[in-house]
Write a protein that binds this DNA or RNA. Structure first.
Length: 294
DNA sequence: AACGCGCCCAACCGCACCTCG
DNA sequence: ACGAGGTGCGGTTGGGCGCGT
């Protein structure tokens, strides 16, 4: 199917935007109460740019709600954690960081966070230690051991919680500093997480679940299609997603449409997730405490 | 001062997805 | 159901800038 040629094939301007062009674009959008059709915008506004270029300039730079300045350590931690769940889905990650654009987060990842993980001996795609290529020495192993101990502790706590009343998971009990995770759960990320649960439930119905096996969320956690074994984080999330309540759902009903129980269990799984990582020691993520002796 | 190098980030490119007729 | 147009998204690029020599 014939695609309309973009700017370069029609003699339209490319490259950095001038202040005048920015002004024209902002004024046009303000005046019209929105951008309307991006394709027709340049013509109507009198810009010699393609619509795509205008959209990018607006969404990544000119939008009034864009937060400028360096990322805070909290934002960086959140990006790392979301990346572990979502992979390179920058737009989805950006949706959880108000005022930040996907491009900005992508740049942050590629220029800082990726290198930081690599320097710590972690695979930036899977977030698991690259033990084969970069053996972890004793000192650095303790960092991971500590981290894993925290997750294991959280897992045990999760088991205990699951055996208690569902009231534990009511919003009134949510920790204040988990607020933004609640936002996540109510957004695309949570949707994606729940969706995966449902798909897994369906799959689980078609193939017997071996006793004690976890209901994997690897699809969600390894969205880049890694063929490597479940990462530490994956296992940790498995702990959450394979809660008893969820396993019960799978056993009791495979119909993804009758999902009240499923929703509840997914909420439970989320709550378990919410309760753990950000409040715990992510300090090993800060700075280059782990130097991989490559 | 001149040069080389690496880093950063705005912008581009092409594909995928969505919507509508 | 299908095709075309519009938009969104992720990967990549290249130019500006700072720093070291």
């Amino acid at each position: 199917m014939g695609r309309t040629p973009c700017c370069d094939k029609r003699g339209l301007k490319k490259g950095p935007w001038t202040a005048e062009e920015d002004e024209i674009l902002v004024n046009f959008i303000k005046k019209n109460g929105g951008h309307g059709s991006w394709r027709s915008l340049p013509k109507l506004a009198g810009l010699h740019r393609c619509g795509k270029s205008c959209r990018l300039r607006w969404t990544n730079y000119l939008r009034p709600d864009i937060k400028r300045g360096p990322f805070t350590s909290e934002e960086e931690k959140l990006v790392i954690q979301l990346h572990a769940i979502l992979g390179n889905r920058w737009a989805a990650i950006a949706a959880q960081l108000p005022g930040r654009t996907d491009n900005e987060i992508k740049n942050l990842w590629n220029t800082h966070l990726k290198k930081r993980l690599v320097s710590m001996g972690l695979d930036p795609q899977t977030h698991e230690p690259v033990t084969s290529r970069c053996p972890i020495d004793k000192a650095n192993a303790s960092v991971f051991t500590r981290h894993m101990a925290q997750w294991e502790s959280a897992r045990l706590e999760a088991e205990a919680r699951l055996s208690r009343e569902s009231s534990l998971f009511s919003p009134s009990n949510a920790k204040a500093d988990s607020d933004y995770f609640l936002r996540i759960w109510n957004s695309e990320v949570g949707e994606s997480f729940r969706k995966i649960h449902k798909e897994d439930a369906k799959t689980a119905c078609c193939s017997p679940i071996s006793p004690g096996s976890a209901i994997t969320t690897e699809v969600a956690l390894n969205p880049v299609g890694s063929s490597t074994p479940a990462s530490n984080l994956n296992e940790e999330f498995e702990c959450r997603s394979s809660s008893k309540a969820y396993a019960e759902d799978v056993k009791n009903g495979c119909d993804s449409s009758s999902s009240n129980d499923l929703e509840d269990s997914s909420d439970t799984a989320l709550q378990l997730w919410l309760d753990f990582p950000i409040n715990n020691d992510m300090s090993f993520m800060e700075g280059n405490s782990y130097i991989c002796p490559l």
